[in-house]
């Protein structure tokens, strides 16, 4: 009986939604339909999620996923020739550009946080990053305790220093926090000996190591200080578009296609330098693919 009722509710609501979509578009989908175009926000150097190749075209893991969403939009709106506009965004501009309607969907490496959910919405998480330490291979740093009295660098505008500060009390250590203006400079601080460790999302650290002059001189060490989901960012309070994005992504997850796309960008050589990040799927990401969700941190 209960099963039947659930089926009935599902069928009715499905037909209702289908009906609504057919007759009455709202939010982003309506805007796309009206304007005949969709604007995709992309990053310029967020490897391997969303970055420019040699031809200045955005490519990456998040971009591949977004193209699938764009395909679904074309199909949904029956607009095979829908114009796709590309708009570069930065970590400072991405939220204002989504909320003011310039960009319809942001495909980058944006942490799905509760703070951001006050302004925007996220599709189901497509990546899970852990904050870890990059050190020189011969530094001897293996645990947080090895950082006592040392300088530890994080990049300005990230929250990685927070994890160090939180751990300082529990571990009875005293760390000098220094800040690089971007990831390349933070890496340079470790390379030049100004800091003993660089605390950041593991995927970014892996990219920096892979791109360095001698990757074997560096390693990623220590425990995961924090785990954060990345998601595709869209406007909030837009259930039609949110559903389309989620359905598309969940479909890719169930069919196993996400794994293929993941491997293409994380375990194989990627442009422009044909570097292999060597970052197999983490248990946390596997879990997120098995149980798709858009919970923020």
């Amino acid at each position: 009986m209960q099963k039947r009722l659930a089926f009935l509710v599902a069928a009715v609501s499905a037909s209702f939604i289908g009906h609504a979509q057919a007759n009455e578009l709202t939010g982003t989908l309506k805007k796309i339909k009206d304007s005949g175009s969709i604007t995709v926000g992309h990053r310029e150097s967020s490897i391997p999620f969303s970055y420019l190749d040699d031809a200045q075209k955005p490519i990456g893991y998040a971009m591949d996923l977004c193209w699938k969403v764009v395909d679904a939009v074309k199909k949904e709106l029956k607009l095979p020739n829908l114009a796709v506009k590309l708009n570069p965004v930065t970590s400072q501009t991405r939220i204002p550009l989504i909320t003011n309607g310039t960009v319809d969907i942001e495909c980058g490496s944006t942490t799905n946080s509760k703070e951001r959910q006050k302004q925007v919405a996220f599709g189901v998480s497509t990546y899970v990053t852990s904050v870890r330490m990059l050190t020189k291979a011969d530094s001897g740093v293996k645990t947080l305790d090895d950082l006592n009295g040392k300088a530890v660098v994080t990049t300005t505008g990230t929250t990685s220093d927070r994890y160090i500060k939180q751990n300082e009390k529990g571990h009875n250590i005293d760390v000098k926090n220094v800040y690089g203006k971007d990831h390349a400079e933070s890496f340079l601080m470790v390379e030049s000996g100004r800091a003993v460790a660089f605390v950041m999302d593991d995927v970014l650290l892996a990219g920096l190591i892979a791109n360095s002059k001698s990757p074997k001189d560096f390693m990623i060490a220590g425990p995961a200080l924090s785990v954060e989901p990345y998601g595709i960012m869209i406007r909030k309070d837009d259930p039609q578009f949110k559903k389309l994005v989620d359905d598309t992504l969940i479909g890719l997850m169930k069919s196993g296609e996400v794994e293929k796309i993941y491997n293409k960008w994380f375990t194989q050589p990627i442009p422009p330098k044909n570097i292999n990040l060597n970052l197999p799927m983490s248990p946390q990401l596997k879990e997120a693919i098995k149980n798709p969700n858009d919970n923020g941190v």
Binding site: S91, T156, G157, T158, R162, V178
Partner: peptide, 22 residues
């Protein structure tokens, strides 16, 4: 800010980054 000084512009970048991204 580009050479680790935690002055006003740094604090702005810090806050508007992941700390208070909204």
């Amino acid at each position: 800010y580009s050479i680790t000084a935690t002055e006003l512009f740094f604090q702005m970048k810090q806050i508007t980054g992941d700390y208070k991204p909204a």
